[in-house]
Nucleic acid binder design. Structure first.
Length: 645
DNA sequence: ATAGGGTTAG
């Protein structure tokens, strides 16, 4: 035994500790260090031991290290040791422990330093709490407010608690801001919604690195300006900036929002070609991109290939299956998730409930809802209640939907009533629709979507008085229907069409194609259904109103430019009207095309067009080329050059 | 024997 002790000097014992070390192993190492006399021989080694445990990024070891601080140590802890513990907690599961450690540190009569405060600020940012300003005061007292690391952490903290103006003040006090502080300010601006100011800052930066590019791209993508994000990514490659995993995550998110499968596929190939590490986050983004672009098979292929998965990964797959109509598989995957001991969260249940909803599994949906509350102790949020209302509503169980709303322990929000209103539209229930509308206007007077829905319900039931009175009301309130917008990606380029949009450079061909479609559909027995048109008619010229809907323009464009047999994928911001749905089915059959439509809309994007620029025509030949020869930056550059033509 | 900015799901 004595021999063994000599064989393992304590510094190698410490280097044994990493995040795979179990608590049991840590205890053994601790015992070894104690019995070998390491701590008495070299008192500072106790501090090293505590730090190693804290920095192992393993929560149990961190707790153990934390508790040892309060036993009678062979030597008082050093400032560095306490700092290490604070640092570990700041990015660990309980960041609020940082603050009690800080008090402990003061009670030991230490003076906290810059290190201490950067960690504390990080903790305050992630707690989202009110402690940030207090820490700001404290660090000023200790004279740490001129330290760059502290300054950028302050900006980050104020931004994360929603106080951009404070972040601005900090920034303006920095005499000579560097790359990092500018990036941190840029991010703060973007997160506050002021992406244009962020851009200004980015544009004027004397130098940029990968992180600043990433911050700007992410800023656009988060605000729903995905197309701008992709364009900026193009610029990034063009300028030869180094791209990394984070870049790709944002770019894939943009592709997912735009339904840009070709670009997403290109990014996937780029990742492989450039040996970027397919970490959990990146893998999850890929799953999400593929499933949002309608390619659930490829999404699941990525899912199964991933060795490490977290709850995000599972949620993306479950959600993808649900929204792609694979409810059975979605429920099966959830069972597997449970068997593998992954704890589901609220988002998991949104996916599961949506799966049940589209498949019409009412009873299963009820069970899932109870499982969430009773077994997993997850308090349902508006989203979950919304799914349940939709579940009943779509299944035609309107009474149950209403009862469910009335039994909600939280105040139903606008979207709860709107979901009900939507079911009323599906099942022609005027009376209940009026009731839902009343509730909606009690909460929010100006809801354009709800007005349009109610008007359509009246129109369906030929209650013209109702139609005109809703229209009147909208006019009074100055409400306008949000313009419909559809995007289609063709050979890696996103094209955007608004309702009644004539601005596309190939509009003539589109119009001709619409005529051709019209002719062939008539032969096939299609008759336009005008009952949902009424809303648009007053601003309309005599031309065929229905053919102006944005998805028809987009599909016609797809027919013009896409090779035969290539599927047409459309992403739309508003509900697809009955006629368009019907029309699409006919086109799909008559032209023998697979057509996939997705509804995509986030609250952030509500009043924004899906992008600001369209009409860019890249000249790529076929998707397979993307896989074969185009794995390089040069390829993307080529796209951009072509786009300028 | 410790620092700052960027990345995922509804």
């Amino acid at each position: 035994m004595a021999l063994l002790k000599n064989l393992i000097p304590h510094n190698s014992a410490l280097s044994l500790i990493d995040n795979s070390t179990s608590l049991r192993q840590a205890l053994q190492i601790h015992a070894h260090l104690l019995t070998s006399g390491a701590f008495t021989h070299d008192p500072s080694s106790f501090n090293s031991f505590l730090s190693s445990l804290a920095l192992s990024s393993s929560p149990p070891l961190l707790s153990y290290s934390h508790s040892l601080l309060f036993t009678s140590p062979p030597q008082p802890p050093s400032l560095i040791t306490v700092n290490s513990l604070i640092r570990a907690h700041s990015s660990g599961p309980s960041p609020n422990l940082c603050f009690s450690l800080y008090r402990h540190l003061l009670s030991l009569s230490f003076s906290p330093n810059h290190y201490t405060f950067t960690f504390l600020l990080r903790a305050a940012a992630s707690c989202g709490g009110l402690l940030g300003p207090a820490i700001h005061g404290a660090l000023a007292r200790f004279g740490c407010d001129t330290d760059r690391h502290v300054q950028s952490s302050l900006i980050h903290m104020y931004s994360s608690v929603g106080l951009v103006s404070h972040a601005r003040v900090i920034f303006s006090d920095i005499i000579d801001p560097d790359l990092v502080t500018i990036t941190s300010m840029l991010t703060a601006l973007a997160e506050s919604g002021d992406v244009d100011s962020a851009w200004e800052m980015f544009d004027e930066m004397p130098e940029r690195d990968t992180v600043s590019w990433n911050a700007m791209i992410a800023g656009y993508v988060h605000l729903g300006r995905s197309k701008d994000g992709l364009d900026l990514f193009g610029d990034m490659l063009n300028q030869g900036a180094k791209v990394n995993e984070s870049t790709m995550v944002s770019v894939l998110t943009a592709c997912a929002h735009l339904g840009a499968l070709d670009q997403g596929t290109w990014v996937h190939a780029y990742i492989q070609k450039n040996r970027l590490k397919l970490n959990v986050t990146l893998g999850t983004s890929l799953i999400d991109m593929y499933s949002k672009c309608g390619s659930i098979e490829r999404a699941m292929k990525v899912f199964w290939s991933m060795k490490e998965k977290n709850v995000f990964t599972w949620n993306s797959a479950i959600n993808g299956l649900a929204t792609n109509g694979a409810a059975e598989e979605c429920l099966k995957l959830f069972e597997l998730m449970e068997r593998q001991g992954v704890i589901p969260d609220g988002v998991t249940f949104v996916g599961l409930l949506q799966g049940c909803c589209v498949a019409g599994f009412v009873q299963k949906g009820r069970e899932i809802f109870s499982l969430m509350k009773d077994r997993y102790r997850i308090e349902p949020l508006h989203e979950h209640y919304g799914c349940m209302i939709d579940l009943y509503g779509r299944a035609g169980k309107l009474d149950e939907a209403v009862q469910f709303i009335h039994s909600m322990p939280i105040e139903p929000n606008v979207s709860a009533w709107r979901t009900l209103l939507h079911s009323c539209k599906m099942y022609n229930n005027v009376e209940l629709g009026e009731y839902a509308m009343k509730e909606i206007t009690n909460i929010e007077v100006n809801n354009d979507g709800a007005h349009v829905l109610l008007s359509n319900i009246y129109a369906d039931n030929r209650i013209w008085k109702g139609v005109s009175s809703v229209r009147e009301r909208m006019k009074e309130k100055g409400l306008r229907k949000e313009p419909g917008c559809s995007v289609i990606e063709v050979h890696g380029v996103v094209h955007e069409f608004f309702v009644r949009d004539k601005s596309h450079p190939r509009y003539r061909e589109i119009k001709l194609m619409l005529g051709e479609v019209d002719r062939r559909l008539r032969l096939a027995g299609y008759r336009a259904n005008t009952k949902e048109v009424l809303f648009d008619i007053e601003e309309e010229d005599k031309e065929d109103v229905l053919s102006w809907h944005s998805e028809k323009l987009a599909i016609a464009f797809g027919l013009v430019v896409l090779e035969e047999g290539v599927e047409i994928r459309i992403v739309k911001n508003l509900r697809v009207c009955w006629d368009c749905h019907h029309w699409t089915k006919f086109v799909s059959k008559t032209f023998d095309r697979k057509i996939v439509k997705k509804l995509y809309r986030t609250s952030k994007e509500q009043n924004l067009p899906l992008s600001s620029i369209h009409q860019r025509t890249f000249n790529i030949d076929a998707l397979k080329e993307i896989h074969d020869s185009l794995h390089s930056k040069a390829y993307f550059r080529k796209l951009l050059v072509n786009s300028l033509i």
